[in-house]
Nucleic acid binder design. Structure first.
Length: 495
RNA sequence: GGUCCUGUGGCCGAGUGGCUAGGCAAAGCUCUGCAAAAGCUUCUACAGCAGUUCGAAUCUGCUCGGGACCUCCA
């Protein structure tokens, strides 16, 4: 079964074949660490995490490069946005790199909460100034960039005359030239659509580097091109990021790399859709940002409660990565409950005993179960349809629970099928989807104490001393421990 | 204004022209000292109008609504 991915560049689902057999190079645009990560950031990093995990599962050796933009995004914008890192540092009386470190640490912490696998290489923009300068010089030498007053701009008109600029984002060059914008440095550019490769630094800028054109800082797009080229080569397999980066960021990366490396950088462009809140994209300009720390603590007016990182991860997995997903407390609460139900079924499944190798006594059920299991791979191969796999898992949940409490005969499905079911649940829930479920089940002391309480409760129940048995259960509930009476008089618990 | 995407039941969301996911919520039942959990059952939707077709949520056109990008942005 071959993997198909939707390539934003061709706007088609294509069969995935890696450039180097057995290996995959994947570059994903990382965060700008000039502020705290918010819910919106969770989407791409969780999305590319399960893509990374799935490629690994399929046997590829993946080099996953995700940068840290720690130089601030120096756009040719107005002064406000000009040097985010430098500006905020003054206000907070911090060294720029101290600020960068703080938010980098916070980002890493959040990724850990989400159980995201660390990228193979996490290069920083400030650590690759030389590579960026080299690239800019090469673009100038090729005649596709020009220097004005210490700044260097990419000559888009010249590039577009012979190259397909705008293909990725579906933009027409003429429209871009028409667009009227009031941008800083506009007057020194040959054309309004030209983008900056290097910006001359005003005296107040803290972060600045020497260059052949004077002191300044790199443009927004060149860092990704430089780092991707360095670690993945002129052409690599996957370039990922949020949809909002298609233009101008990725479009510009294509132009830069095409001139420098004589090749469009990525074979497959994969873009995740946005998380919206009340139908609007989460962003600073909309004033609707929920930071991840606020999500985890519930400390935000839009949140009715705290939401665990795994709830958010599950919430994202429940929709297709190319669909927008609208956030609400209600939707997240639904995900929380769904995940709990699914995970408890998984715990039950792990304990089911396949027994001896017997043929299934319920052929119809056997067929359905096998179909649901086999579709896991099929769905994931079809452009990472995680939502459909989860739907199948929920179809299987009543079967698992049914076998457990005897509602469905243990031999209704074949032993081999049960083993396959266990294997596939493990692979997808844990290895590919990267879900975990925090329980105290590993704590042996707590286990012992719980067993004691359960024994006491059983004894009091046997004596019809319900006051005592209810007290035990109620007190545990207050502590966040849920005690369930099983059919056969046994008791189970979870936190 | 330009380019593109989108509109699915109370809510969230899959949906490759025919078999019309799944989750949450709600209701009933079973189990149960009670509860919780679990199981069974019920709730059948595709913005509107027209068209193509034997047949459309799925294709086409128009209308209305929402969104993204065009500016830092995941």
């Amino acid at each position: 079964m071959s993997l198909k991915v939707y390539n934003s560049y061709t706007r088609k689902k294509e069969v995935f074949t890696s450039i180097t057999p057995g290996h995959v190079g994947m570059y994903v645009c990382g965060p700008t660490v000039s502020g705290e990560s918010h819910l919106g950031h969770a989407r791409p990093y969780i999305t590319f995490d399960f893509i990374f995990r799935y490629l690994t599962h399929k046997g590829y050796k993946v080099r996953y490069v995700r940068n840290i933009t720690d130089a601030g995004h120096f756009e040719e914008e107005g002064k406000e946005a000009e040097d985010k890192v430098g500006k905020k540092a003054i206000l907070e009386k911090l060294e720029p790199m101290e600020l960068v470190q703080k938010y980098t640490n916070l980002f890493h912490w959040a990724m850990l909460q989400f159980n995201c696998v660390e990228p193979s290489i996490e290069p920083t923009a400030t650590g690759h100034i030389v590579e960026q300068l080299n690239m800019i010089e090469k673009i100038i030498a090729e005649g596709y960039a020009y220097e004005v007053n210490g700044s260097v701009y990419f000559d888009l008109k010249k590039y577009a005359a012979t190259h397909d600029y705008g293909k990725l984002s579906g933009r027409v060059m003429d429209d871009l030239l028409e667009t009227t914008r009031e941008l800083d440095g506009q007057q020194e550019k040959r054309d309004k659509a030209d983008f900056a490769l290097w910006k001359s630094a005003a005296p107040e800028h803290i972060m600045r580097w020497k260059s052949p054109w004077g002191e300044g800082f790199p443009g927004w797009h060149i860092e990704c091109s430089a780092m991707a080229t360095k670690y993945l080569g002129a052409e690599f397999d996957i370039h990922g990021g949020g949809m909002d980066l298609q233009f101008p960021h990725h479009e510009s990366e294509i132009a830069q790399s095409t001139i420098c490396n004589l090749h469009s950088p990525a074979k497959y462009w994969i873009h995740n859709n946005m998380i919206t809140i009340n139908g609007k994209k989460m962003g600073k300009s909309y004033n609707n940002v929920i930071k991840l720390t606020e999500m985890f603590s519930g400390n935000h007016p839009l949140l009715t409660q705290a939401f665990a990182p795994m709830t958010i991860r599950f919430f994202i997995l429940q929709s297709h990565y190319r669909s927008p997903v609208d956030f609400s407390s209600e939707a997240l609460l639904a995900s929380e409950k769904a995940l709990k139900r699914l995970w408890e079924a998984y715990e039950v499944l792990k304990k089911l005993n396949p027994g001896t190798e017997e043929p299934a006594t319920d052929a119809a059920l056997e067929t359905k179960v096998l179909q649901w299991i086999n579709e896991f791979d099929e769905f994931m191969d079809d452009d990472f349809s995680t939502a459909k796999i989860l739907a199948n898992m929920f179809e299987l949940t009543p079967v698992i629970n049914g076998i457990k409490d005897g509602h469905i005969a243990a031999n209704a499905i074949a032993g081999s099928t049960l083993i396959l079911l266990q294997k596939q649940f493990k692979i997808y829930l844990e290895d590919v989807f990267g879900l975990t479920y925090v329980t105290a089940a590993d704590d042996e002391t707590l286990h012992g104490v719980m067993q004691l309480l359960i024994d006491i409760r059983k004894e009091s129940k046997a004596k019809k001393d319900y006051a005592t048995s209810d007290k035990i259960r109620n007190q545990l509930t207050t502590l966040g421990i849920e005690l369930k009476d099983e059919k056969d008089g046994a008791m189970s618990w979870n936190m």
